[in-house]
Design a protein around this nucleic acid. Structure first.
Length: 257
DNA sequence: ATGGCAATGTTTCATTGA
């Protein structure tokens, strides 16, 4: 079973590229973030022609998440089902695919350290952990996938000295991500690749991509039971090339399931 | 080669992203 995740920076602007990637890579579950489409605007028909069903949770202009699969998508939940306040933005959707609970998460960026958006980012990560505590045991088969807007470690950042002052690599954001993982989630890429400079996002500016000035902020986190079955993980740098790319590359994890 | 931001809609500039 192959699970993939991709911040596409508008599904409508990226439709041909995403459809081609699905055709070539045949994921069993594809989590999308920043679809930037209301639910009725999501191009479900294009993916249906490829044999994929889409479950979506979107809004106008910003945010938006989805899960696509050629298999049945069961027990779909949009947003946090923790009984708390209504979500501020469409940033989370979950569905069960072949017995695996799959989450597509778009963690708030946080804008500036110390801003209201920064507080909201840390709160959002804490709320995601609470939701997992309510819904799962660490020995469940679950994958929390998406754009976390936090790089876990120094080896995931091209200039840690600079980036540690920003929302993407600030010690507090890293601590919030660590706390999430301490629920019992494993960073699947690091099960198979130890080397530094494996990035999933590059700024559109400053020739960041050809210079590999990036950060690894997109993750597929697996519960221990699922991680035990992880046979491969990777980042598809090729999909960041060419005309009109997303600023993020798709990431994948394969499981013996 | 992979080349110096991009998508949206508030639309000819402002907002947001990371």
């Amino acid at each position: 079973m192959r699970i993939a995740s991709w911040n596409v920076n508008s599904i409508r602007a990226r439709l041909d590229r995403v459809a081609a990637w699905v055709r070539a890579n045949q994921p069993d579950a594809l989590c999308l973030q920043e679809t930037k489409a209301q639910d009725h605007e999501f191009p479900v028909a294009v993916f249906r022609e490829l044999g994929y069903t889409s479950v979506v949770h979107g809004q106008k202009s910003y945010n938006g998440v989805a899960v696509l699969s050629p298999h049945p998508l069961d027990d779909v939940v949009r947003g946090f089902d923790d009984g708390g306040d209504e979500d501020d933005g469409t940033r989370l959707i979950a569905a069960t695919v072949r017995g695996v609970r799959v989450y597509s998460a778009y963690v708030p960026n946080g804008q500036m350290v110390g801003s209201a958006a920064w507080d909201a980012k840390l709160h959002w990560l804490a709320r995601l952990r609470r939701t997992l505590e309510l819904r799962h045991q660490p020995d469940d088969l679950a994958a929390v996938c998406g754009d976390f807007n936090v790089a876990p470690e120094e080896r995931d950042v091209y200039d840690p000295q600079f980036w540690r002052t920003t929302v993407l690599f600030h010690p507090e954001a890293r601590a919030s991500l660590r706390h999430l993982c301490e629920f019992g989630l494993v960073d699947t890429l690091r099960l198979h690749h130890e080397e530094p400079a494996l990035y999933s996002w590059w700024d559109y500016r400053m020739l960041a991509f050809p210079k590999n000035m990036g950060l690894r902020i997109d993750l597929i986190l697996a519960t221990r039971a699922l991680a035990a079955r992880c046979t491969a993980a990777g980042i598809d740098r090729e999909a960041r090339k060419g005309n009109l790319p997303s600023d993020h590359a798709p990431i994948t994890a394969d499981f013996d399931l």
